[in-house]
Design a protein around this nucleic acid. Structure first.
Lengths: 141, 141
DNA sequence: CTCGACATTGGACTGCGTCCAATCTAGAGG
DNA sequence: CCTCTAGATTGGACGCAGTCCAATGTCGAG
């Protein structure tokens, strides 16, 4: 995987310090992260990341498909580095989000039988119990 | 379809005025609605519905599977009457949400190949252009 | 180096959803 | 029909995600 500035350049986005910071932070964290989690690292390192900048940059990068928004039900938005296409399992017990490999591996992996619609992405949200909660007997007590 | 109190009784929930009001409002509106949209009708009719009650009742009914939460990306939660299982198409241009019939028609309609996980629901979020936007040429300009 | 287009920033604001403890009520049992 | 209790409702306020705007800073092309 090429580095942050390379990815930005490839997407024809201007390479700015903020965007590199955000991409690096998200890459380091891995997985699907909330805006706050992404902002935490730079903040701890002494250069707090203004909300407006964060959201603006995230939107621009999501727009360019460098990032994508993980569907996991309503609530806080979660971002992840665009990579292997996959889906998510939201645990009803612990609330954790696990990645679920996609059989097809390409977008869109499913077609909607809606005449006239143009689908470019199909993301599946699985709900149930994650392996850990399914194994450990009583979930919540 | 049986009426609100019947549905509540069938789910072994206590039949209270609030819940009936909410179910009726959502049934009348149809589709996937935000909490505000659900509260609007009773409010206009002179009996405003307190936020806390609304959310509490919605949570209880969603828990009992009388209602379900429609996945349509992060943001405001949308509720709908549990009925025929289906998915959603979120239009990238106009933001509208359309129902997409589910081939299987039963939950869960897809399996996740995640060893050990217990899936009870698989909801697909399609993204792209709704028929209207796909037809009307330029989406946003 | 210069310049224009575009990105960043601060600060405040909107609005969803949650929390808590007091009060009320559905519905079972007598 | 009356009583009783678990569970539902309520009000009010809080926390937090995400947005907006206009001024300023910076990338990168020429």
């Amino acid at each position: 995987m090429i580095d942050a500035s390379g990815r930005l350049r490839a997407a024809r986005l201007r390479v700015t310090r903020r965007r590199v910071t955000i991409l690096d932070a998200l890459t380091a964290l891995g997985g699907h992260r909330t805006a706050d989690e992404i902002a935490a690292a730079p903040a701890a390192a002494g250069s707090p990341l203004p909300r407006a900048s964060l959201y603006h940059a995230l939107a621009a990068m999501a727009d360019a498909s460098i990032l994508l928004v993980a569907d996991a039900g309503p609530g806080t938005a979660r971002f992840e580095i665009a990579g292997e296409w996959h889906h998510h399992l939201v645990c009803r017990s612990c609330g954790s989000i696990s990645d679920v490999p996609c059989a097809a591996g390409v977008r869109p992996c499913l077609e909607a039988n809606l005449p006239g619609a143009v689908i470019d992405e199909a993301q599946v949200v699985f709900r149930g119990l994650c392996p850990a909660c399914a194994a450990g007997v009583a979930p919540a007590s």
